[in-house]
Design a binder for these strands. Structure first.
Ligand SMILES: [Mn+2]
Ligand SMILES: [Mn+2]
Ligand SMILES: [Zn+2]
Ligand SMILES: [Zn+2]
Lengths: 160, 160
DNA sequence: CTTGAAATTGAAATTCAGTTTCATCTGAGG
DNA sequence: CCTCAGATGAAACTGAATTTCAATTTCAAG
């Protein structure tokens, strides 16, 4: 947790940017949060500690953290933008469309096949997005049914 | 082309909706367009034939076409919403981040492995999104360089 | 310390894609 | 033809994100 913090400060210094109370608080709060947090959630957590911080500053700080490589932005289906720690190993996601649960996975065979597909069409892959949308164990009809996630009135059902 | 048109009219009738000059034009124009068209492009094409048609009507008609299963909405990276013909075989996409070229692919081995991943975590997949972002042959550094796509100032570079 | 230029902040305004509202118009069944 | 539910389009609205700008803060130099 501290390392990332130091990394961020170093990044700011290198670019002639300043270390501020707000940036410290936002970064610290983000690093302490669990994976896959939304701007609004982060903003609320930050506000509890300092109610005068503006949402704009959260957006701006997230952008800086992304430039620093410490954070990655994910777009899980329309309008569900979440942030997670960067500098981690690559992985893709399983997303429950009912309760919002997100499970990470990585599969080297799939990654390899992707490269083959790209080669076949003469592409060089720079990044990719592989998301599996469906029902997690607790949200499947047969089982004791999980509760729908608060903020997931309309969850993505991207490609058919 | 005509079959889809008939299908749409039938769909409208079944639901007590009306066949209108606007819906006919929008549907016809869409069916004639190439794959992966944006609302704005479609709107412009439609306008050339009837300048008094509103953008709202294009949005509304696309929604109807989606309900009819004739069109699918795709979200290629933030804010790049495109529409393509529905009722086709499932496929995924390769997207050139430089010129915007889109190539479709399907790989049954990948699809199978996806299912395995889902099973491993107890998920039932309802849909998925698999997009490979990178450079197409003509946009690769070595080759005679393609021109950047007009509307692609900022193209998606989703997961790292 | 003190100072001041440059960077940062947050409120408010702005943008952008998409949706809703509503008065007016029109398709299609009788 | 009539009628009226459904459709249209202009304008207003929404929500996420960005820009603007005056006031504030950082930090390096003195
Ligand atoms: Mn993740
Ligand atoms: Mn396609
Ligand atoms: Zn679930
Ligand atoms: Zn290209």
């Amino acid at each position: 947790m501290s390392e990332k913090f130091i990394h961020f400060r170093k990044f700011l210094a290198e670019r002639g940017y300043k270390t501020t109370r707000q940036r410290d608080l936002i970064a610290r709060t983000l690093f302490q949060s669990g994976r896959h947090i939304s701007v609004e959630e982060l903003y609320q957590h930050v506000r509890k500690q300092d109610p005068r911080i503006g949402l704009v500053t959260v957006y701006r700080t997230l952008k800086l953290l992304m430039e620093a490589g410490l954070v990655e932005e994910r777009h899980f289906g329309e309008g569900h933008t979440l942030y997670e720690e960067g500098l981690r190993e690559h992985h893709d996601h399983l997303i429950c469309t009912h309760c919002g649960k997100i499970v990470e996975f990585e599969n080297h065979i799939i990654e390899g096949l992707q490269e083959e597909v790209a080669k076949k069409y003469g592409f060089i892959i720079l990044s990719h997005k592989h998301e599996l949308y469906g029902l997690c164990e607790t949200c499947q009809p047969s089982t004791p049914q999980g509760r729908p996630h608060e903020n997931l009135t309309t969850l993505p059902v991207s490609s058919a």
